[in-house]
Design a protein around this nucleic acid. Structure first.
Lengths: 246, 246
DNA sequence: AGCTCATGTGAACGGCTTTTACATGAGCCG
DNA sequence: CGGCTCATGTAAAAGCCGTTCACATGAGCT
């Protein structure tokens, strides 16, 4: 197999042709394997079949490659959250929970992106484009929270949508960081991270007085009536959001 | 100032006397400054005034030093959470929220420990002692949740204490990670991380049907009556847990 | 065909981690 | 007190990484 390098060189010639992309892909794989801390610029170059100095033609330094990956991650993240939200269909609460699950799914299925985005220790404001991408992703949650806030039961003071969005974000991020990723997933739990987060969000929404049942809503007209008997029993499946304790 | 090294050597002689401790302290300072990723074994040695090879007499490798710090961190963390809980005085809900604030305070005031414990990327199960220390810290939250669960309003199904503990942990960790530490703290927020977490926990507890007012409770006898008018107004300060929207 | 400039190479520097052979001296034993 | 021993520290070296620099290559334009 020692002809590999020469052959690769012969195949591609002196110039790679698409090195930037190849480096991003290589780095993605390496980060998925060994984490952002273990990832090495030289390794990525080797994997792409170029010398250790070549990457510097495309990235100022290792950090810039990392933050490029983080930026892409935020873009894909935004796309997945947007798809999960699906403009609040079929009803706001259901869609909202789907966003929560999408958050966890992303953390689980794209560990490299998630790592670069949230665990690589690179400063949020290092790159203006990065920060913007991060904000766009958050804005999906924020917009969803706004729709949800608009459905708040009348009478009670309306919760600020921004606060709700931050709360949901912190729940999803907390569960993902602690229980849903790599080594952390090895902590033994009585339930899956998905179930854990779903219950958490349901209880939270109930605390805000929302009906937490899932059924189609009027488009955006009158909010469904809150059962007058007591919000604590409103529409939650029997046993509450956490199922029956055995 | 170039006599410094020789003088230090003269002061301490060939043997340091307390190198292990000195290295831990040096590492703590370095991690606080530059994060666990930027921290360097060689730097710690330099700071302690010894050669780069000396640390290997006390730690198998860099990771072992890191996990020693994480372990100490979990011990101090446990102590602070235990103090905050204060065995549920003056009432369970108040004490519970104090635990939440203690979580954030620790993340803020001991960034080096927090970093080593949660952000250094070292596997949770690398070290049995580390894992045990981590579990002891979590058990404080768990025990508090158990006391809280015992106060659950009668009639409704009782929430599993373990689940509550995990929920609270994820909220505190999410807020700390996203908003309360280093670079992340630079995200602009409409409220302080402490307020954010407090509101989050209050809403969550209300979602479980808990009275979220703060007033002395009977020792552990009958839970205070839930005002029959509506849990959504029960004891929460005017404006709800989030203050008045302006 | 010739030129130019983006892209890739190899060598070199300094720094880090870890290992190895050797140095030192604190504490114990006789 | 004298000598031994072993924990603790040192210097040197190997191997890796990030980064820079002068130089090579060849794709695309004129």
């Amino acid at each position: 197999m020692s002809w590999r390098k020469e052959e690769r060189r012969a195949e591609r010639g002196y110039h790679h042709g698409n090195l930037k992309e190849a480096l991003l892909q290589a780095a993605l794989g390496l980060i998925a394997e060994k984490g952002a801390a273990g990832f090495t610029f030289a390794d990525a170059a080797r994997m792409a079949g170029v010398s250790a100095a070549a990457p510097y033609r495309h990235f100022r330094d290792r950090d810039e490659l990392l933050s490029s990956i983080a930026q892409r991650g935020f873009e894909q993240f935004e796309a997945r959250l947007t798809a999960a939200w699906d403009d609040g269909r079929p009803d706001t609460v259901t869609a909202f929970e789907r966003v929560g699950r999408a958050y966890l799914a992303f953390a689980r299925e794209e560990p490299a992106f998630y790592n670069a985005m949230f665990e690589s220790g690179l400063p949020v404001d290092a790159n203006a484009a990065l920060q913007a991408a991060s904000e766009r992703a958050f804005n999906v949650i924020r917009a969803a929270a706004e729709r949800l806030a608009a459905l708040a039961p009348p009478g009670a003071p309306r919760p600020p949508a921004m606060m709700m969005a931050l709360h949901i974000w912190s729940m999803a991020h907390g569960v993902a960081s602690l229980f849903s990723r790599g080594d952390a997933a090895r902590r033994k739990l009585p339930m899956s991270p998905d179930e854990l987060l779903e219950a958490e969000v349901l209880i939270y929404l109930r605390g805000l007085g929302f009906p937490t049942e899932r059924r189609p809503q009027a488009k955006s007209a009158e909010p469904p009536p809150v059962p007058p008997e007591a919000p604590s029993g409103s529409g939650v499946p029997p046993g509450g959001p956490w199922g029956k304790p055995k």
